[in-house]
């Protein structure tokens, strides 16, 4: 009886000391091994490209190169759930996207936006209304006037029902009291192809996703749903300039599971900040037509919380939620 008690005490002591030692070690020497970044989208997509460019630049600021792991499926649901469930030791981080504030309100996932702790935002792309260059509308005002006069006649292609660009079009309809026909495609590219072929009237994808076709003179961007005019598209007015108070963007940034220790978060914030401001990373993004949009953790948290509320209200209004 006595020996058993002794054994259990010893075991407790060993376990406790291991924990203490373990936590001290992790705080002082973090990172001491490879950090794994989970990407919730497939290799070759925009989120993947941002992550790989980031991992490439981060080599200089970390003792070991980051590993990039794609966990795809369910419009990001699989990978984002994986990030929430990952061990919170700083060696498992994720590339969070705007979907982490959207999917919970569609009732498809078990996590909430609060289950993620932001480290830093790296990239953001606003929604834009683009039309075929042959179309009669030269400005947003002409476009929306036509839409209001012909309810449901304007077909807007999006990257999938419930995805960010669909919600952008829905939010615009809601704000302006217009009625559109929303046509979902399997991603932004097929929607743009349909626009080029004249099968739909407009798309709400990001300016970067139509930039090629704008340069070729095939597509015209009428307005961009950002707070201010964005770099590379300075001559295109924002939606706010037309008097519609709406700005919708997708974003990508480093997030970690909720229970990741504070001190490890601080180390990560530093490394991510250095990487984000690295010239190599910036030029890689620019080459890919992606917008560099660094925000530190507190600012990033504000964006996430704001979007969380916005999408919750919007989806309730649209009857998309559950």
């Amino acid at each position: 009886m006595k020996s058993r008690k002794l054994v259990s005490t010893l075991a407790k002591a060993i376990i406790t000391s291991t924990f203490i030692l373990g936590s001290i070690a992790s705080a002082a020497s973090y990172p001491s091994k490879q950090i794994e970044v989970i990407v919730p989208y497939s290799a070759g997509g925009g989120t993947d490209l941002v992550t790989r460019a980031f991992a490439d630049a981060a080599k200089q600021y970390l003792p070991e190169a980051m590993g990039v792991v794609n966990k795809t499926g369910g419009g990001g649901a699989v990978g984002l759930s994986e990030i929430v469930r990952a061990r919170a030791d700083g060696y498992h981080i994720g590339m969070g996207t705007v979907e982490l504030a959207m999917l919970p309100h569609l009732g498809m996932v078990t996590f909430q936006a609060e289950d993620f702790v932001p480290i830093a935002r790296l990239n953001a792309e606003p929604s834009a209304i683009s039309v075929n260059a042959d179309s009669p509308w030269q400005t947003y005002d002409e476009f929306i006037a036509h839409a209001k006069a012909n309810p449901g006649a304007i077909r807007i292609g999006n990257s999938g029902t419930g995805a960010i660009w669909h919600l952008a079009a829905e939010a615009l309809a809601d704000k302006t009291g217009t009625q559109f026909s929303h046509i979902p495609y399997d991603g932004a590219n097929p929607a743009v192809t349909a626009l080029l072929g004249g099968h739909i009237e407009a798309v709400t994808v990001s300016p970067a996703e139509v930039a090629n076709h704008v340069k070729n003179g095939k597509v015209r961007i009428l307005t961009i749903m950002s707070d201010e005019r964005i770099a590379g598209f300075e001559d295109i007015p924002t939606l706010k300039e037309s008097g519609v108070d709406l700005s919708i963007m997708t974003w990508r940034g480093i997030v970690v599971p909720k229970k990741t220790p504070e001190d490890i978060q601080m180390v990560l914030r530093d490394a991510v900040k250095q990487t984000a401001n690295d010239d190599g990373f910036k030029s890689a993004l620019a080459k890919m037509n992606l917008t560099h949009a660094y925000l530190d953790a507190p600012e990033f948290q504000k964006t996430i919380s704001r979007d969380d509320v916005f999408f919750k209200d919007l989806m309730k209004k649209l009857g998309l939620g559950s």
Binding site: G73, G74, G75, V78, L106, M108, V109, G160, T161
Partner: peptide
């Protein structure tokens, strides 16, 4: 493909 709701997934995200 059109409405975006899960069908026959049995609650598994992997089956989306």
């Amino acid at each position: 493909p059109m409405s975006g709701y899960p069908r026959f997934t049995g609650g598994f995200n992997e089956l989306m």
